[in-house]
Deep mutational scan, measured.
Amino acid sequence: MKVTIEENEETGKFTIKVKTEDGEEKTIEIPKENLEEILAKLPPNVEII
């Protein structure tokens, strides 16, 4: 699983794009305050880009 994290400076939010092993892609946008909480919940086999 690969996770790409991009900061949107205009909105102050982060866009998180997840690509699973089977090629499925999902995108979510979260507030900056929630980034550490989300990262802590990721499984250890995740590659963060």
Rank of each mutant, 00 (worst) to 15 (best):
K32W: 13
K17C: 09
E21I: 11
E6L: 10
E6F: 14
T11S: 08
E37F: 13
T4L: 07
L39R: 02
P31H: 11
I5P: 01
F14M: 10
K17L: 07
T11G: 08
E6D: 04
K2G: 03
K41L: 13
E7S: 07
T15N: 04
I49R: 04
L42K: 01
L39A: 00
T11A: 04
K2P: 02
I49E: 06
M1K: 02
E29K: 05
T4D: 02
E7Q: 09
L35E: 00
E21K: 09
E9H: 13
V46P: 03
G23Q: 03
E21T: 09
K13G: 15
E29F: 09
I5V: 07
M1S: 04
E6V: 11
K13I: 14
I49P: 03
V18T: 06
K13Q: 11
L39W: 04
N45H: 10
E36H: 13
E29V: 15
K19P: 02
N45G: 13
E36M: 12
P31R: 10
E9W: 12
T27G: 03
E33L: 05
V18L: 11
E29M: 09
I48L: 07
E47A: 08
E7P: 05
E29I: 15
E47R: 09
V46M: 06
I5R: 02
V18I: 15
N34H: 13
K26H: 14
E24S: 11
E29H: 08
K13R: 12
E29W: 09
P44W: 14
P31N: 13
T20H: 08
I5L: 05
K2C: 13
E33G: 09
E47Q: 13
L39P: 00
E21G: 10
I28K: 01
E9P: 13
K17V: 11
T4F: 14
E21V: 11
K32I: 08
E9N: 11
E36F: 14
K17E: 02
I16S: 00
D22C: 12
V46C: 10
D22L: 06
V18W: 15
T15V: 12
I28F: 15
E47C: 13
T27M: 10
K41Q: 13
A40M: 12
V18A: 01
E9I: 13
I28T: 05
E36R: 13
E6P: 00
N45R: 05
G23W: 02
K32F: 10
F14I: 09
E10C: 14
V18K: 00
N8M: 03
T15S: 06
N34C: 15
K41V: 05
T20D: 08
P31D: 15
V18Q: 01
I38K: 01
G12T: 03
E9R: 13
V3P: 01
E24C: 14
E24M: 11
K32A: 11
P31G: 12
K2A: 04
I16P: 01
E36Y: 14
D22A: 07
E9S: 12
A40K: 11
I5W: 03
K19C: 13
N8L: 04
E21P: 11
M1T: 08
E29D: 05
K13V: 12
K19S: 08
F14R: 02
G12N: 06
K41H: 09
N45D: 10
E9G: 11
I48Q: 02
E24V: 13
I38S: 03
E10N: 09
N8P: 01
I48A: 02
E9D: 08
E21A: 13
E7H: 12
V18D: 00
K32T: 05
L35I: 06
N8G: 04
I30S: 03
K19H: 11
N45W: 14
N34D: 14
E37A: 12
F14Y: 12
E37C: 13
D22T: 09
P43N: 07
T27H: 08
V18R: 00
E25V: 12
K2N: 05
V18S: 02
T11V: 03
E9F: 12
E47D: 07
E36S: 10
K2M: 11
I48V: 07
V46S: 06
I38N: 02
V46N: 02
E7F: 15
T4V: 08
K19W: 15
E25K: 02
M1W: 14
K41D: 06
T20S: 08
P44T: 08
T27Q: 06
T20F: 15
T11F: 04
E10R: 10
A40I: 04
K13C: 15
E6N: 05
D22I: 04
T11P: 04
T11D: 09
N34F: 14
K26L: 14
E37N: 07
E21L: 12
E10A: 11
I16L: 07
I30M: 04
K17N: 08
G12R: 04
T15W: 12
I30D: 00
E21R: 09
E33Y: 07
I28L: 09
E24P: 04
E47H: 10
I30L: 05
E10I: 12
E21Y: 11
N34V: 14
G23A: 03
G12S: 04
T4A: 03
P43M: 08
T15C: 07
E29S: 08
I28Q: 03
P43I: 07
K17P: 00
A40F: 06
K19D: 04
E6T: 13
I49D: 04
